[in-house]
Nucleic acid binder design. Structure first.
Lengths: 349, 349
DNA sequence: TTGTAAGCGTTATCAA
DNA sequence: TTGATAACGCTTACAA
């Protein structure tokens, strides 16, 4: 009876002289037994140190674990420290939590030697961001629900924003005052690794469904519309959306002779824009007088500062919520497109 | 054989005319069967769409899931958007990932109606931050490993920083130039809810093991040492470490008549300090000339801006790494104390 | 209202 | 080197 190992439902049943089914019901279906008996069982369980049905056994038996996995395109380390990904996750977490589910975090890129087979314990998968190799996706249990966020998996429900429209919108705003020397700073858009100026030697990622590619599209159409020759607009590439990786590139841009230095930076993320802002401040370059800057995302850090960032807000939390609701089957599995909103700050009034 | 439902190990065994044990060994113990057979099994498995042993069944059988849970004191929504907690999590994730484990996130406070029984699927628990009620802790499977971070559970391995020493250190630095009107802004230190000035009507949290209490201790001893009567130093309380919650309190502090307005703010977090900095800038109060500000934590946002925050850096990522290593049994379960480092920025030179 | 018993898909211990 | 077979702890028809 009460030996070393953890007490099981069976032990408890024996102890109380009732059947295992009754104990199970006491925990899972209150309506299947008399309140009195249930009361007694719960009390005795607590007294004897039985803390409820074992999750492993239960999930094997029922086939469901109440665990939803989020697969992050980037490493967990990066994602957890990125404002946009964090907001997305908190949206997911909020909904899962409200419905008694929990969140398992899986790295996409560069996971350990052995693939985490433990992953397939999840009832469903939310895949956030483009997977570099579909290998991981292949390994996902086919039967399980899948929702893709910010990219497309064929025949799979997705949640998206209209990146092209959003960047068109902000570029159009920025171009209401025509810049002399506009420049675009994008995020991982070249096939080759390139942290700096994009030259003729680089090729852009072919996949038109990446968000970077879509945003470039939007910038370019707004520029063309104003009669700017987009081929003449310098393109700079950033390999990772962090201050450390951005800043050398931004420094290179800002340290050009003044007659070549851009007077408008269209950045593909707020992180890039904020880095540009900080470096401009350090150099005494006045924003927006000498340099106008636009961001993308609408993260808090860009709004709770002076000068406030001009940017497009995307509802990352909302994206997370919708993705989670789809996975839980609380909204129909579909192709959702979320709204964006222009945020007129001080960096490009 | 190949019906609707997912293929199982047994199905595969039947299909290949080998025993289930052999299939299992092919996946788990290469040395237990001839390479040729193993090769064949793996190939056929892939062809027939068997993606390896089911995690639920495996975890029931072996007793281990390769999942480690982190229980966060605050809601997931808050924690994911807090720089310190995020860094901690990324430290945990990094180590877990390197050893083929995955991360399950559990909310401490305010979890859903039904306790997530799915939690006990985890092999071990890292508890981050003070648990408001130990109820959740009681429910944790007694047998499982537990590591406490930033607070104490009796008889449990912990990882900590020396909050008192660290805040003593930074306060001492700040006091090298004696302020006329110092003030302290702390984080959730009153028993009653209080977002504003702490008065005689408020009582401080009794528990001396909270990090806020420990930091206050450090501030006070540095002040006393300089002959300042700590009873005269105003104490302000913040209920949540976010810009939104901080800013009204900071506004109240800064909008006092100039002869009452503090000239030194000792803040218990960088978030508070950064909010103070932003609001000071908005009001044209010069930092550090008219107002010196110190933070606590050393988050990136405080260092990648101008002026840089003067603060104490705690190695949150390192804390996460150590906690994860302890859980995995890669370092001895013990009481670890991590170092802190004074970061001399521009807000209190 | 309560009890009986058959799995859920594995792994581990044997024996062959 | 490979194969039977008994658990792992639980849920759920179905029977009483």
């Amino acid at each position: 009876m009460t030996d070393q190992r953890r007490m099981t439902l069976k032990d408890l049943a024996q102890e109380l002289n009732v059947s295992t089914a009754t104990i199970s019901n006491a925990f899972n279906r209150p309506d299947q037994l008399s309140p009195a008996l249930r009361e007694r069982i719960l009390k005795e369980a607590k007294r004897l140190g039985y803390s409820g049905p074992d999750a492993k056994a239960r999930s094997l038996r029922t086939g469901r674990s109440r665990i939803i996995a989020v697969i992050l395109a980037e490493s967990l380390t990066y994602s957890l420290n990125d404002a946009v990904a964090s907001e997305f996750l908190s949206g997911v977490a909020e909904v899962l939590d409200a419905h008694g589910h929990t969140l398992l975090l899986l790295p996409g890129r560069g996971h350990a030697s052995q693939p985490p087979g433990s992953a397939n314990i999840a009832d469903g998968f939310i895949v956030y961001g483009l997977m570099p190799n579909n290998k991981l996706l292949d390994e996902l249990p086919a039967q399980r629900t899948l929702v893709a966020v910010d990219f497309d998996i064929e025949g799979c429900p997705t949640v998206h924003i209209d990146d092209t429209a959003a960047s068109y919108k902000i570029a159009q705003h920025a171009l209401s005052e025509l810049p002399k020397r506009p420049a675009i700073i994008n995020l991982r858009l070249t096939k080759e690794v390139c942290n700096g100026r994009v030259t003729a030697e680089h090729t852009l990622l072919p996949n038109t469904s990446t968000i970077s590619r879509a945003r470039l599209e939007g910038f370019h159409s707004a520029l063309s519309e104003q009669g700017v020759d987009v081929a003449q607009v310098p393109l700079w590439n950033i390999e990772e959306n962090t201050f450390e990786v951005c800043s050398p590139v931004i420094a290179e841009i800002l340290d050009q002779p003044i007659e070549k230095r851009p007077d408008l930076l269209l950045c593909m993320s707020d992180r890039i824009a904020l880095t540009a802002l900080t470096l401009a401040e350090q150099r005494g370059i006045r924003v927006p007088e000498e340099l106008r800057i636009t961001g993308f995302d609408g993260i808090a850090e860009g709004q709770y500062r002076a000068p406030r960032l001009t940017t497009v807000r995307q509802d990352s939390v909302g994206k997370g919520r919708v993705a989670a609701q789809m996975i839980l089957g609380r909204v129909p599995l579909a192709q959702q497109l979320l709204q964006t909103e222009l945020l007129l700050g001080d960096t490009c009034p």
